[in-house]
Simulated scan of single mutants.
Amino acid sequence: MQVITGAGRFTAPEPGESRRYDEQLRVTDLSLGTYSVPVGGVDTQQPHNEDEVYVVTAGRARLVADSGEVEVGPGSVIYVPAGEPHRFVDVTEDLAVLVLFGPAEYTRSQSQSQSQSQSRS
């Protein structure tokens, strides 16, 4: 067992940055971190090769993805499949999001991601 402290807590980006990601856990099949985007911040993330689950712990924004868009706030839980372009926009309150990657972020190659996506179709 491991207690993960600080997960889901908003942390302001460094000066000159528009967002912040802090990884709190990494094991072979899972990673977890907190993604923070302040009001006026810009989410510049690129699609990941891993599946993601977002759990919004604070703030308000809209998540825009190829498959649609949704308003998010505390308690929102969203699944984004590997390879799907998506980003948070219109951040109206400092946004803090727990991000769970399966498998751990940056461990799946693009070809693995594509074959996973095709098997879900």
Rank of each mutant, 00 (worst) to 15 (best):
V53N: 05
V97Y: 04
R108Q: 14
Q116H: 13
V80D: 06
D51N: 11
Q118P: 00
M1G: 15
E50V: 09
R60Y: 03
Q46P: 00
A61M: 12
V72Q: 08
L25G: 02
G75R: 04
R108Y: 05
S76Y: 11
G41R: 12
T5Q: 13
P74D: 03
A96W: 02
R26G: 00
Y35S: 01
S109T: 14
L32S: 09
A82G: 10
L25N: 03
T107A: 03
T44D: 15
G16T: 09
Q45V: 12
A96L: 07
T34F: 07
R108I: 07
A7H: 01
G83V: 07
G40D: 11
S117F: 03
I78Y: 09
Q45K: 12
L95F: 04
F10W: 06
G83E: 11
V89C: 01
R9I: 15
D22M: 03
P81H: 09
H86T: 07
G6E: 07
S31G: 10
H86M: 03
Q110H: 13
P13K: 06
Q118M: 04
P47G: 07
A82N: 07
V99N: 05
G8L: 03
V55G: 02
G8V: 07
Y21V: 11
Q24K: 02
G40A: 09
S111H: 09
A12P: 04
T107Y: 06
D90A: 13
E52A: 12
Q46A: 15
G6Y: 10
P15E: 12
G102H: 07
A61I: 01
L100K: 00
Y54A: 03
V3I: 15
S67A: 15
I4Q: 04
R62G: 02
Q110D: 14
G41E: 09
D51P: 07
E17A: 10
Q2C: 00
G6Q: 06
V53G: 10
V37P: 01
E52F: 01
F101Q: 01
Q114H: 02
V42K: 14
R87A: 08
V39E: 10
S121H: 10
V80R: 01
Q114I: 15
S67W: 12
D51W: 08
V3D: 10
H48G: 05
T92P: 06
P74E: 12
G40V: 08
S119L: 10
Q110C: 00
R120L: 15
Q110V: 10
G68S: 13
G73F: 05
L95P: 09
H48S: 04
Q2P: 01
V64E: 14
E52N: 06
P47R: 10
P74N: 08
G40E: 08
G33P: 04
F10A: 09
L30D: 03
T92D: 01
T28P: 00
G40S: 11
F88N: 03
H86C: 06
Q112D: 14
G73D: 15
F10P: 05
E17R: 08
E17I: 00
P38D: 14
V3L: 15
H48Q: 13
P85D: 12
S18T: 15
P38I: 08
T34I: 12
I4D: 03
R26W: 08
R108S: 11
N49C: 12
